[in-house]
């Protein structure tokens, strides 16, 4: 699936400036596309605009060439799996039940799960390495397990695209790497993956392209090497950085500099 934004403008009522102002991007099938930027730069708004949730003042959000607002909700849910930033569980629920909810858009109101649904759920559980947790209560899981279960639910939708809002924040190295490996595999198997993240270094290693937002504008767009230059990153984040090369992959790596020691008077 091709996910595109053309000169998107989003104004929230009462806000002093547009949350997004003329943002364009394009991610095609097989592409892992990272959206980066400081807090409040419009990353989550872009995600919501792409999915037809945020109201557009101008521009267009297109999924396979059709504006996302024009998509039927159920058809959209069959095509795009979304992992939103946060999710609070109101009542106890097993991991299997939660992942099974990914089949919701594929089932009629009174239809129950068939063989194809069960197969989709078990392969999603398998892909996210949570099969062993199937009977656990989701409210009892660790942060990393919970995120993997949410991604499994998105995969159980058997979508053509995944859109994720900071799925690795607050996770340790092992779980971060596990999720990025999973997303990379998903992209390699033909899905379009749009990943909103704060992790510049890992995004540089895993993403095919990246979009750097600053105050609702596009600060840079391109391959990690094109986007992650010292000048761009320093000015967007308002802090001096050095860019070096990752020893394993050669991808750009950010080191925030410490301010020089104050001179004695």
């Amino acid at each position: 699936m091709r996910i595109e934004a053309r000169d998107l403008v989003v104004n929230y009522p009462g806000a002093p400036r547009p949350a997004l102002d003329g943002v364009s991007m394009s991610a095609s099938a097989g592409c892992l596309y990272a959206v980066l930027g400081p807090n409040g730069s419009g990353k989550s708004t872009l995600m919501r605009a792409l999915l037809g949730v945020a109201p557009l003042s101008a521009g267009a959000a297109l999924l396979d060439g059709r504006t996302s607002a024009a998509w039927d909700r159920r058809a959209l849910a069959q095509a795009v799996g979304v992992v939103a930033q946060s999710e609070s569980i109101a009542f106890p629920l097993s991991v299997r039940q939660m992942v099974g909810m990914g089949r919701y858009p594929h089932l009629g109101p009174l239809e129950s799960e068939g063989d194809a649904d069960r197969a989709a759920v078990s392969s999603a559980l398998e892909a996210c390495d949570v099969s062993a947790l199937a009977h656990r209560d989701v409210t009892m899981l660790s942060g990393g397990e919970f995120q993997r279960v949410r991604i499994a639910r998105a995969l159980a939708q058997e979508p053509q695209a995944l859109v994720l809002d900071e799925p690795t924040s607050s996770l340790d190295i092992r779980h971060q790497m596990g999720i990025l490996e999973l997303l990379r595999r998903s992209a390699d198997s033909g899905l379009t993956v749009v990943l909103v993240t704060h992790g510049l270094d890992l995004a540089a290693r895993y993403a095919d392209r990246m979009l750097l937002l600053a105050g609702g504008h596009v600060a840079a767009e391109g391959t990690p090497d094109e986007v992650m230059t010292e000048d761009t990153i320093s000015s967007v984040y308002g802090w001096p950085v050095a860019i070096t090369s990752d020893p394993e992959s050669g991808a750009p790596r950010v080191t925030p500099r410490r301010p020089p020691p104050r001179a004695e008077p």
Partner: peptide, 22 residues
Amino acid sequence: ALARPLNLMAIGEETAYYLGAN
């Protein structure tokens, strides 16, 4: 007849919406 969409409400309105519930 509303039981299935009601189930989705347990994981939050936003996610229920992304899963195609009205």
